[in-house]
Design a protein around this nucleic acid. Structure first.
Length: 938
RNA sequence: GCUGAAGUGGUGGAAUUGGUAGACACGUUGGACUUAAAAUCCAAUGGCCAUUAUGGCCGUGCGGGUUCAAGUCCCGCCUUCAGUACCA
C-alpha cells in the first residue's frame, strides 16, 4: 500500500463535511475556545500560497484545542463587499453579486482542498442581506446614541433629549461637534422639531456633517485616511484631493481614551499596539487663547509645553486658518494671498517631501501675551497643519526646533527661558532637564510643576486650561459606491430619518450601470426604485416621491470596514433572524480567544472593530468590551520574482553574466518558466507572451540563460504567484500545510521556495511507511521499548510547548526527528504509534485520519485526547547540565529533562560530598539522576 | 527623527531563555541501486590547519564589558526591514 495523498485527502474532506465533524455547539459542558481568522475578501485572482499561512496556523491551534478537550469555535466567511467587484462591474456590466458569488466558489474550493476544520455551517458574508441587515441595525443604534463623558460610555439619545428639556445643554459633558451652540431648557422646548434634530446630530455617535474629505476623482469616491498611502489611493494609486462634502461620520474620537487604555488589557503584539497608540496620538498639554490686538478675536492654540509660555515670540497659523483673512493688514494682504495661493497649489505630497524649506509670511497683526500683555507678531506658515490641533501654534523658538528654525530664518527674536542652557545652535527640548527662567511666577520650576502652575494661571484669567489632544479624527462613513451596505436612512426636508428596525434590511436596489450619475451623484442615484414609503414601510419607485409619505433614500453606501467591524459576534449565532446574535450565544462565547491576521489592518479594521465592540458593550448588547483577547500577526509569504535583462531598445535578452556594460531593463518573467538554478526555459518564454515570440537571447557560456532573482510581495502583476492548487496536486494538502509551517516563524516575512517542499513530502512518505508496509498495517500490540517511550515523550513535550508558543515551524522538525528515530528503532508498537498520530494530526490531518482508521478506529482522530507528557520516560536517558561548583570547578550533570533549577541545585547539594571527593580527578561530566550519581565521566 | 522587529553556514532556519552554536530541512559533493532517468537509501557538508589515528585554532553584524561560562545579559556603534511623521 502506497501513500496516495490525493485519494486520502479527498476521502477525509468528504467525511468531515458529511459528519459535521467540526461543528461547534453553542452550549456545552466543555470549556469554550474561539479561534478566528481575518476573513478574506474573495478576489477574482483566487488564493496564492501566501493566503493560507495564517489559516493553517489557526487551524492547527483549533485542532489542538479540540484534542485538549475544548469546545472550539473556528468559523470562516467572506468580507464580500468591496471595490474590485464593483470595478469589474463597471467594466463588464456584470452584477457584483454574480462576480462575488463566483469568486467565493473558487475560494471555497481552494480552502476545502487544504483541509481546514472550519465550521462552515456558520459561514457569514458581509454582502448578504441577512447579514447586512444587522450592520444597518448597528448603524441605527449608533445614530440613537451619544457619548456621556461623565459616565464615560455611550447612552441612548432619549436620555439626552430628556436632559435638554430639563436643563439645556450647558451641564452636559458629552462628545459633540465643535460648533455646537449653547442653549437652555427653555430654548430647547422652543426649538422646532427640525432645529432639535439638527442639534442632536451634533451629539449622535454617527452624524451627518459637512467635512473635508479625501476625494479620489478617479475612483469617484471618498477614502479614509488609512486607505491613502503616500498621498495616493491604496487601491490603484490614484491621486487624492481634499474636498468638502456632506458625509456620515462616526464619532470614534469619543472613544480615543478607551481605545488607548483598552490596549493594556489585551494580548496583542507591541508593534501593533504601538501603531494604534501612534494613530490615536494622545498628547497632554494645554489649550491657550491669545487675544488679538485691535480685533475682537481670539486665537486658540494647543501646546504640550505651557511651561514655556513666557518664551513665546510669535504665533503661526496654518495658511488655511479661518482667521487669516480677517487679521491680515492691508499692507500685508498681497503677500499673504500669494502665499496662500502658492501653498494650496502644492499637493500634500509635495508639502511632505519638502520639509526643509522654511516659508511663511507676516500677517501684520499682533496677538497679546496673556500675562505680559506684550505684542506677539502673527505669522502664517505651512509647517503648521490645518488638520491638527487648532491649526495654530504659539511659537517658542528656544524650546522647539521648528519654531527655532522659523525664527532664525525670519530674524525673529529668540528669548531664553531656560537657565544654564546654550541655545545658540538649536532649541532645547529636553523636558527632563528643564529649569525655567525669565518667566515671572514660573522661575526655577521644573517641567512638571511649571506646567501645572501655568495651567492654573491661565485658568484664573480664563485664557486657557489643561487639555488632552488626540490625533484620531472622526471616521468618514459614506462611500460613493454601489457595492456596499445601503444606509437605512431616508430624508425628510433634508433631515435624516432612520427606517424602523422591523423593516430592515433595506436591500441594494438594481441599477443599470455601476458608475456615478452624470450629475455626480453616487451609483445609487441611478436606481429607479429607491424611495421610502413611510405609510407602507417599503421601498418604492422614485416617481412617487411627490407623494406626501414618500421620501428619498440615502444614496451613499457604507465603507468596507462596516461589515468587518462586528462579524466575529455574528459567527456566534449566524442564523439568528431576531437579533444580531442571541444573548445566550454571546454570553457563552464572550469574545475571540485567538485572532490571526495581517498587521496591515492595525489602524483600520482592528481599530474600528474595537470601537464598535466598545459601543455595543456600552449599550449592553455584548458582554465584553474588547473583541479579541489575543492577536497574532502572521507574516507574509513573499514571492521570488524572476527578471530577464532586455538590452535597451531591442528585443534581445542577455543572460545575467552576459550583460557586461550594456544598458538593460529588467523585466518580470513568470516564475514557472524558471528552474531552481535560476535558468530560464527560453522556448517557453517565447511562447509566454506574443511580444517575446521573436526575442533573441545571448546565452551564458554553458548554454543556459540566467535570470536575476528578487524577493517581492507575491502578486499577479509580478508573475511570481505560486498557486496552492498546484502544490496540492503534486504534493498534497498535508505537505502544503507542513511546509508553510516549516518555512519559518509564523510572524516572520519569508520567501516561498517550492523546491524545499520535498523535505516535508518525504517526511510524509516515511511516516506512512512507519505504519504501513507492503503487506498492510505494521502496527502491533508489542510492548514499547524504553527508547520508543523516550522518543515519544520527548516529542510530546516539545510539540506541546511548540504549539502553545505558536512556534509551529519547530514542531515539524520534531516530527521528522521522531519518525526517523522510530524507523531506526523498527518500532511497531501501538502504544507509541497511536499517540504519535494524535500529535501529528493538527498539522497533517488527512494522513493522520487515514492511518488512524487503518489502525482500526472508527471515529475521527480529531475527538481524541491529546497525549500527556510523562517525565518518567526521560529520566534514565537524560541531558547534560553544566553547573559551577565552588565558583571555579565545572561539572556537567546529566539530569532528567523535567527538573527545575531548584531541583538540580538540591541534587547537587545532596551530592556535594561525592563531588568534592572528585575534585582532584577533574571529571568532565557527572551523570546524576535524582537521588543518586550514576556515572562519572572523567 | 521617532516607534517596533531583526542581523547565526551556500539557503530557510534551531538553540531547553546564560550552559557542547549550526537541530531539522533545502542545496551541494561522493557512493549504492538502475541500460538510463526519476524515486529510494548511505556518507560528507561553518572556516582554516594538521594527521596513520586521536586532534588544534577561529567562528552568531562591529567594538567594549559582566561571568567559571555570552548567539543569549549590560554599554557604545553599524546595517536591514516594517510602521509613522513639519503632530505644536
Amino acid at each position: 500500500m502506497n501513500y496516495n495523498f490525493k485519494e486520502i485527502e479527498a476521502k477525509w474532506q468528504k467525511y468531515w463535511a458529511e459528519q459535521g465533524t467540526f461543528r461547534a455547539e453553542n452550549n456545552a459542558d466543555k470549556p469554550k475556545y474561539y479561534v478566528l481568522d481575518m476573513f478574506p475578501y474573495p478576489s477574482g485572482a483566487g488564493l496564492h500560497v501566501g493566503h493560507p499561512l495564517g489559516y493553517i496556523a489557526s487551524d492547527i491551534y483549533a485542532r489542538y484545542k479540540r484534542h485538549k478537550g475544548f469546545n472550539v469555535l473556528h468559523p470562516q466567511g467572506y468580507d464580500s463587499f468591496g471595490l474590485p467587484a464593483e470595478q469589474y462591474a463597471i467594466q463588464t456590466g456584470q452584477h457584483p453579486a454574480i462576480t462575488t458569488e463566483n469568486n467565493i466558489k473558487t475560494y471555497r474550493r481552494q480552502l476545502d482542498q487544504i483541509g481546514f476544520s472550519f465550521d462552515w455551517s456558520r459561514e457569514v458574508r458581509t454582502s448578504s442581506a441577512d447579514y447586512y441587515k444587522w450592520t444597518q441595525w448597528i448603524f441605527i443604534q449608533l445614530f440613537d446614541s451619544w457619548y456621556d463623558n461623565q459616565q464615560d460610555k455611550a447612552r441612548p439619545i432619549a436620555d439626552l433629549v430628556e436632559h435638554f428639556s430639563n436643563h439645556g445643554n450647558s451641564t452636559v459633558d458629552a462628545s459633540c461637534s465643535e460648533n455646537t451652540p449653547q442653549f437652555s431648557a427653555q430654548d430647547w422646548c422652543g426649538f422646532s422639531e427640525q432645529q432639535q434634530q439638527e442639534i442632536l446630530l451634533h451629539y449622535r455617535l454617527t452624524y451627518l456633517a459637512e467635512t473635508e474629505v479625501n476625494w479620489c476623482p478617479e475612483l469617484g469616491t471618498v477614502l479614509a485616511n488609512d486607505e491613502i498611502v503616500d498621498g495616493v489611493s491604496e487601491r490603484g494609486g490614484h491621486p487624492v484631493i481634499r474636498k468638502k462634502m456632506t458625509q456620515w461620520s462616526m464619532r470614534i474620537s469619543a472613544y480615543a481614551e478607551r481605545l488607548l487604555s483598552g490596549l493594556e488589557t489585551i494580548d496583542w503584539t507591541d508593534a501593533l499596539k504601538e501603531s494604534q497608540r501612534n494613530w490615536i496620538g494622545k498628547s497632554v498639554g494645554a489649550s491657550v487663547r491669545f487675544r488679538v490686538k485691535n480685533h475682537d478675536a481670539e486665537i486658540e492654540v494647543f501646546t504640550t509645553r505651557p511651561d514655556t509660555i513666557f518664551g513665546v515670540s510669535f504665533m503661526t497659523l496654518a495658511p488655511e486658518h479661518e482667521l487669516v483673512s480677517q487679521l491680515t493688514t492691508e499692507q500685508q494682504k498681497a503677500d499673504i494671498e500669494s502665499y496662500i495661493q502658492a501653498t494650496s497649489k502644492r499637493s500634500e505630497r509635495e508639502r511632505m517631501a519638502d520639509v526643509k524649506t522654511i516659508s511663511g509670511v507676516f500677517t501684520g497683526a499682533f496677538a497679546e501675551h496673556p500675562f505680559t500683555k506684550a505684542p506677539i507678531p502673527i505669522w502664517i506658515g505651512d509647517y503648521v497643519l490645518a488638520g491638527y490641533g487648532t491649526g495654530a501654534v504659539m511659537a517658542v523658538p528656544c524650546g522647539d526646533q521648528r519654531d527655532y528654525d522659523f525664527a532664525k530664518h525670519f530674524k525673529i527674536p529668540i528669548p531664553t527661558i531656560f537657565s544654564g542652557v546654550d541655545i545658540s545652535e538649536g532649541a532645547f527640548t529636553d523636558k527632563a532637564k528643564t529649569k525655567i527662567a525669565n518667566s515671572e511666577f514660573l522661575n526655577d520650576l521644573d517641567f512638571k510643576s511649571a506646567t501645572e502652575r501655568a495651567i492654573e494661571a491661565l485658568e484664573a484669567i480664563n485664557q486657557g486650561e489643561g487639555k488632552i489632544n488626540y490625533r484620531l479624527r472622526d471616521a468618514v462613513f459614506s462611500r460613493q459606491r454601489y457595492w456596499g451596505e445601503p444606509f437605512p436612512v431616508y430624508y425628510v426636508d433634508g433631515m435624516p430619518k432612520m427606517i424602523e428596525i422591523q423593516h430592515l434590511p433595506i436591500t441594494l436596489p438594481e441599477v443599470e450601470a455601476y458608475l456615478p450619475t452624470e450629475t455626480g451623484e453616487p451609483p445609487l442615484g441611478r436606481a429607479e426604485v429607491w424611495a421610502w414609503d413611510t405609510q407602507h414601510n417599503e421601498v418604492v419607485h422614485n416617481s412617487k416621491i411627490n407623494h406626501e409619505t414618500v421620501f428619498p433614500l440615502e444614496l451613499n453606501t457604507m465603507p468596507g470596514w462596516a461589515g468587518s467591524s462586528w462579524y466575529f459576534n455574528r459567527y456566534m449565532d449566524p442564523q439568528n433572524t431576531r437579533e444580531f446574535a442571541g444573548q445566550d450565544a454571546l454570553n457563552y462565547w464572550q469574545q475571540v480567544d485567538l485572532y490571526i491576521g495581517g498587521s496591515e489592518h492595525a489602524t483600520g479594521h482592528l481599530l474600528y472593530a474595537r470601537f464598535w465592540q466598545k459601543f455595543l458593550f456600552d449599550r449592553g448588547y455584548v458582554p465584553v468590551d474588547e473583541f479579541a483577547k489575543k492577536l497574532i500577526n502572521q507574516g507574509m509569504i513573499l514571492g521570488t520574482s524572476a527578471f530577464v535583462a532586455r538590452i535597451e531598445g531591442t528585443n534581445t535578452f542577455a543572460s545575467l553574466d552576459q550583460i557586461l556594460d550594456q544598458n538593460v531593463q529588467f523585466i518580470h518573467a513568470d516564475v514557472s518558466l524558471v528552474n531552481a538554478s535560476d535558468e530560464l526555459d527560453v522556448d517557453a518564454f517565447k511562447l509566454w507572451r506574443n511580444e517575446f515570440a521573436t526575442a533573441q537571447f545571448i546565452l551564458s557560456d554553458d548554454g543556459t540563460f540566467k535570470v536575476k532573482r528578487e524577493v517581492e510581495k507575491m502578486s499577479k502583476s509580478k508573475y511570481n504567484v505560486v498557486n496552492p492548487d498546484a502544490i496540492c496536486e503534486n504534493y498534497g494538502a498535508d505537505a502544503l500545510r507542513l511546509y508553510e509551517m516549516f518555512l519559518g516563524p509564523l510572524e516572520q516575512y519569508k520567501p516561498w521556495n517550492t523546491a524545499g517542499i520535498t523535505g516535508v513530502s518525504s517526511f510524509l512518505k516515511k511516516l506512512w511507511k512507519l505504519y504501513i508496509g507492503d503487506s498492510g498495517l505494521k502496527v502491533t500490540d508489542a510492548a514499547a521499548t524504553k527508547d520508543n517511550l523516550k522518543t515519544l515523550h520527548k516529542t510530546i513535550k516539545k510539540v506541546t510547548e511548540d504549539i502553545e508558543q505558536f512556534s509551529f515551524n519547530t514542531s515539524v522538525s520534531n516530527f521528522m526527528i521522531a519518525v526517523n528515530e522510530f524507523t531506526a528503532q523498527r518500532c511497531t508498537s501501538r502504544e507509541v504509534l497511536r499517540p504519535l498520530l494524535v500529535l501529528i494530526s493538527p498539522y497533517a490531518p488527512h494522513v493522520a485520519e487515514e492511518l488512524w482508521s487503518l489502525m482500526g478506529h472508527n471515529t475521527s482522530i480529531s475527538t481524541t485526547q491529546f497525549p500527556e507528557f510523562d517525565p518518567k520516560h526521560l529520566i534514565e536517558s537524560s541531558k547534560t547540565y553544566p553547573i559551577s561548583f565552588n565558583g571555579k570547578m565545572r561539572f556537567k550533570l546529566e539530569l532528567s529533562l523535567d527538573l527545575s533549577k531548584e531541583e538540580i541545585e538540591q541534587t547537587v547539594l545532596a551530592h556535594e560530598k561525592t563531588i568534592a571527593q572528585l575534585q582532584g580527578k577533574v571529571p568532565k561530566k557527572v551523570i546524576v539522576v535524582p537521588g543518586k550519581i550514576v556515572n562519572i565521566v572523567g
